[in-house]
């Protein structure tokens, strides 16, 4: 069963307090971020229903939102998600080659997760790091000026983290 810890519930309350009375629905996106982070990196129907109950809104209101925004995962993902940008400015600086290299290194296609559940590769659209291309998002942070060597280092770093 999904349930926030007492500590996290305080965080939830402070999120709701940012809005005027009765406008608690505004806390939906911040809450979904928190839920995704706390409950395994993705949003199950159970998690979404739980969030709906916290905000006293209907489950459909959560589904509508969760499926609209690209940062919410509606399927389980690997422990480390490589989100590589492929839009214009990154493409000009060789993002295609970086994506190909990651595919080859991890032996997975775009949108797939490695058999050991460690890595998921996603291609994403512009993340606002065009001057530091090619780049990817890994967790809460950006990894910029990617090269093949850097990709190797990142994979190594992730493997060592567990």
């Amino acid at each position: 069963m999904v349930k926030f810890t007492e500590d996290k519930m305080k965080e939830v309350q402070s999120m709701i307090d940012r809005y005027p009375e009765g406008k608690q629905k505004s806390a939906l996106i911040p809450l979904l971020h928190l839920a995704q982070q706390e409950f395994g990196g993705w949003l199950s129907a159970e998690t979404m229903d739980y969030v709906a109950s916290l905000l006293s809104i209907e489950p459909i209101e959560v589904y509508e939102v969760a499926t609209f925004y690209s940062m919410f995962n509606l399927q389980p993902v690997g422990k480390h998600v490589f989100e590589v940008c492929q839009t214009g400015p990154c493409m000009l600086n060789g993002s295609d080659q970086i994506i190909d290299y990651i595919k080859q290194r991890l032996n997975i296609g775009v949108g797939e997760t490695t058999a050991d559940g460690m890595f998921t590769l996603k291609t994403v659209e512009c993340l606002g790091a065009c001057g530091y291309a090619p780049m990817m998002q890994l967790g809460m942070h950006y990894r910029e000026h990617l090269t093949k060597t850097k990709v190797d280092e990142i994979i190594e770093e992730c493997r060592n983290k567990q």
Partner: peptide, 10 residues
């Protein structure tokens, strides 16, 4: 009375 229907995805 209750909202149960909407549009999903983008």
């Amino acid at each position: 009375e209750k909202r149960v229907h909407g549009v999903l995805s983008r």
